[in-house]
């Protein structure tokens, strides 16, 4: 029995040493243009989805069916997010093509508002998704969530109207 434990211990140490050697060797292909193996993809996606679902499960969702939220969330989305997450009538950008993991096209389908709020506020590690919480209050983030819920049903024309920042220029005639 003690023999077996010794063997197990030695194997574990060898494995850890091998892993450390691999990390240190520089052999890992770090490029964003070298996709993960299927198993790595599964592990990372599951890790992300489970973490977001657990962390956001008790978040109370405010009333998102308010036109004022769309009018404040729309221009914020257009300025800060559309470059990565696209918009009606635009299916590709340098960022949507080049980033890995790929930013989802948020004009195609609306996700769970709790999950969206959490992701916008906290960001996602080791991806291009920034945390906007340090620089934006919850109200502004919920306004973007309200906008995201409607985004998939907007035409390019409606999107342009809702996201235009005309407040400064609206009254100069």
């Amino acid at each position: 029995m003690t023999r077996m434990i010794k063997w197990l211990l030695a194997a574990t140490i060898a494995l850890a040493a091998g892993l450390a050697a691999f990390i240190y060797s520089g052999l890992y292909p770090i490029g964003a243009d070298a996709p993960h193996a299927a198993a790595t993809n599964w592990a990372l996606a599951t890790l992300r989805d489970r973490s977001i679902a657990r962390a956001s499960r008790d978040t109370p969702v405010p009333d998102l069916e308010d036109p004022e939220l769309l009018l404040s969330g729309g221009p914020d989305y257009n300025d800060m997010c559309a470059g990565c997450h696209l918009k009606p009538g635009r299916d590709e950008s340098d960022l949507s093509i080049g980033l890995y993991p790929t930013p989802p096209n948020l004009s195609k389908r609306a996700g769970d508002p709790r999950h969206q709020f959490w992701v916008i506020k906290h960001g996602i590690k080791t991806s291009g998704m920034p945390a906007w919480g340090p620089t934006h209050d919850d109200e502004r983030i919920w306004a973007m969530v309200a906008f995201l819920q409607k985004l998939p049903e907007l035409t390019p024309q409606q999107y342009q109207v809702l996201t235009a920042r005309d407040s400064e220029s609206g009254d100069h005639h």
Binding site: D79, S93, Q157, Q158, Q160, V161, R165, E168, S169, G170
Partner: peptide, 18 residues
């Protein structure tokens, strides 16, 4: 992406389309 950038701030909503 200057074409996108130039009309970012102060762009008027194009309501004719609606």
């Amino acid at each position: 992406d200057p074409s996108e950038h130039k009309d970012k701030k102060g762009e008027k909503p194009r309501c004719e389309a609606l």
